[in-house]
Nucleic acid binder design. Sequence first.
DNA 1: CATGAATGAGGTTTCATTCAT
DNA 2: GATGAATGAAACCTCATTCAT
Lengths: 225, 225, 225, 225
Amino acid sequence: MPQTSRVAVSLLSRTIGEDAVVTRNPERSRNAILRAATEEFATCGLGGARIDRIAARSGSNKRLIYYYFGSKETLFKIVLERAFAGIRSAEQALHLDELDPAEAVRQLITFTWNYYIAHPEFLTLLNSENLHRAVHLRSLPHIREMNSPLISLIDGVLERGRASKTFRGGVDAIQLYVSIAALSYFYLSNSATLSTVFGRDLLAPKARAERLSHMTEVILGYLLL
Amino acid sequence: MPQTSRVAVSLLSRTIGEDAVVTRNPERSRNAILRAATEEFATCGLGGARIDRIAARSGSNKRLIYYYFGSKETLFKIVLERAFAGIRSAEQALHLDELDPAEAVRQLITFTWNYYIAHPEFLTLLNSENLHRAVHLRSLPHIREMNSPLISLIDGVLERGRASKTFRGGVDAIQLYVSIAALSYFYLSNSATLSTVFGRDLLAPKARAERLSHMTEVILGYLLL
Amino acid sequence: MPQTSRVAVSLLSRTIGEDAVVTRNPERSRNAILRAATEEFATCGLGGARIDRIAARSGSNKRLIYYYFGSKETLFKIVLERAFAGIRSAEQALHLDELDPAEAVRQLITFTWNYYIAHPEFLTLLNSENLHRAVHLRSLPHIREMNSPLISLIDGVLERGRASKTFRGGVDAIQLYVSIAALSYFYLSNSATLSTVFGRDLLAPKARAERLSHMTEVILGYLLL
Amino acid sequence: MPQTSRVAVSLLSRTIGEDAVVTRNPERSRNAILRAATEEFATCGLGGARIDRIAARSGSNKRLIYYYFGSKETLFKIVLERAFAGIRSAEQALHLDELDPAEAVRQLITFTWNYYIAHPEFLTLLNSENLHRAVHLRSLPHIREMNSPLISLIDGVLERGRASKTFRGGVDAIQLYVSIAALSYFYLSNSATLSTVFGRDLLAPKARAERLSHMTEVILGYLLL
DNA sequence: CATGAATGAGGTTTCATTCAT
DNA sequence: GATGAATGAAACCTCATTCAT
């Protein structure tokens, strides 16, 4: 029976004529698994994630997951690594050094906010990893590179702002970076409980716009002289 | 009612000749279980928590947990409810209305920071609940009361600050409350990954002091005219 | 459905009136599992043994096996320990010190032969353990007591035989003990391949009698002056 | 036939311009697999052996193992057959008929002992096969030839010994052969558990020498008049 | 009130084997 | 001849939960 269906699939892919959709495509299989795993880990956490569901979602099977990744834990590590790689890659598009200081900060806040909204899995994956006290992250070979290259860019922006007498002095780039992340992260990551407690939908378009504007005011209100 | 039976039991154990260690104490058993469950849920999340471990940690047994709480999920709900009750109760000690506006804000930031540090389980429990999109919280009968009474107090502080021309106007109390929480919460809740990525211990005494000072500057820098 | 059958069983046991057959009988459950496990490990080896089959054979379920024994490996260890305890206990019935030397040796050979025939599982369990280079045995707390108390008895017999000029001198008790075991053990443990290779049934009654007689002749032929 | 194809392949690889390392060498691949399989089956037993490990150890891959041998079971059979072929071939070097009876027996014991020490895999493979009640052995086409040609040689030695009044009469060659094997086999095959139980290393050089000497004394003590 | 005994369902992982190239 | 990719079946083990006392 499985044999029949495999033949059918095989014929199908030939009929369609897509070279890439041949049954054997390791790259594609690996990616499908990683995508499904990202979703699953983001939705259920490491403990709540189910290999079975990842197999189903990815259109592959449990065995293949172990063939490629060895264990649930390893899979989680790679998913996490990719999540970091994703945001670091997106940050490349920012050119803070080419903007005037206030605009650069505005861009950074907006970028952070939008990225978190577009990638809610990043927030939950990070929460999971923090629950596990960063054990997986720590074991990754490229953690150093996880460090945002933005820090030094922010440092430059702060310096320029101070030089032009538009920004206050004595601001630590890391503290600022963390605070900007915090204002978006907490609001989005905790939107479910906050919405419940406050009795209003924090993710409604209007609420979102208000939040972005508030955050920008807070940060610039603090920085601008 | 529990008291009556406890006395009876107590007499019984004396009759039997048992030692001073009262084995039958419903209140004590319940609390021991709740304490252990809080620790377990905080450490492992809802999915990762194990009834077995809660039984062991509480010095009771699995059956008793079911006797008192019916299910893991219900137990989690009660733990969550108590966590909210805890912070609401601590907030009672703040008397924001008796302080001048800037000092009130300073107090609020410090209180939030210290409470999160003293109650790390509050952060992880909340993260777990957000992972589950607040389903447990929503089903609690007293959610309304979960809403922090601080909001209206903060509103008062902002109003007084604006009236005395020390604070800027147009600040939403909820946005400010969320931002103050965010600055502490994110830093502490994500300290493991942040410390790993930045390569320095964010929880070291000096780092903590710097963070508190930074947060205060950000918020007051924003509010003060 | 499971509930129904449990009730039925419960009623059944009451009807029969056997007190011992109540549903809850840990001792009985444990023993049933150990008996089934002994059979399974003896038949299939450690690697080939299946927890499912042990559960089925013992009339219990997989979960209970883990409840009592924790792991397949631990279960194997306990089975092994009991196998040793069994032969040591049977050896108690021998009273080599009360017999004249030649008769004592004859008794020992016969006992060994008969015990191995009656307990084929002892041989295969021991073979499994040797395949694993005695790791399980070594971790047992009472290995010292596994040492046969027969060694010193044999030593006494050899001494008496030498004193009475019936036995040769210079015989090491351990070597002799091992040799006596070897002659029976190899024949029985390898009877399948030997029978196949020689094309005759080594376990047929006549063949058995001949073997016992041969072994006795070899050992006594060696010992007697 | 294999040779022809090998040449072809060889030419092919030269044409392609590959290095001197011939990748395609069926004979070599087959042997590498058989060697690795022998090790694996000897170390882990049939049930514990892993095709994956055999592939890794042999430097080939799983698919090739199936290409050549069809199944794990068949592979085991061939490994077993080769093990028997090995000892039969080694026995060829013995010329019991050219030695005087006592010396012939001494040689046989020494040979057996040394062969088992040099080929521990023979013992464990045989144990595995006995656990499986010789099913694989029985299905081999050449079992008859597995029968040691030594039996008739031993028969001759016994006859000569009896004729020269140096050996006792009535000794069955098979029984003697089995006993000689038994004394070495049991000691070596069970050395792990015996060493553990007796608390001394039975494989230490001194212990080995003592064992060989003891075994020789037992057998000759029995045979010699 | 309290607890050891017991279990069905389902979890991660492993395995021999086959497919497609 | 040779190999990476893929898989159904089943292994060991875990879990929340319930039973019987």
